[in-house]
Amino acid sequence: MPLISQQQKAVILMADDDADDRYLVQVAFEENDIQCELLFVEDGSEVFDFLMGQGKHEEKGSKIPNLILLDLNMPKKDGKQVLQEIKALPAYHHIPVVIFTTSKSPEDVRQLYKMGASSFISKPSSFDKLSEVVRNIGTYWVETTMLP
């Protein structure tokens, strides 16, 4: 039984500039029937618009997601910058940030954990694997762990 009630669905924010990736992840979430609200932003600076309810997100108002899936290679602000700024802001630094990227560089992995990333996931190259990864995210972050 999910730890978060139906009324309070977990909010997962995915920051990725790639429309294909957003589409594929959304399909994988739907096919695995993950009980959460999956929302998207398209670049690094939009993450903060979302968090603070500015710009595009002014009407919806400020919203704090339970989990952030963060891509590294993004225009305007890249993933590392976003992570650094989130961890520097007291209002947001409790949000678990999962790095979801193409990079497999051990250097990146080390550096991002050091900066406070909660997980580092390398984007898989087949849909089966992607589906598996998304299923695991669902099981672990939505059903197993308590999110703030």
């Binding site: 294909d20 594929l24 399909v27 087949s126 992607l130």
Partner: peptide
């Protein structure tokens, strides 16, 4: 170049 390649692989498996 890895990025589009990975997507090609994902789409083809899908």
């Amino acid at each position: 170049l890895q990025e589009p390649l990975r997507k090609l692989q994902t789409f083809s498996t899908r």
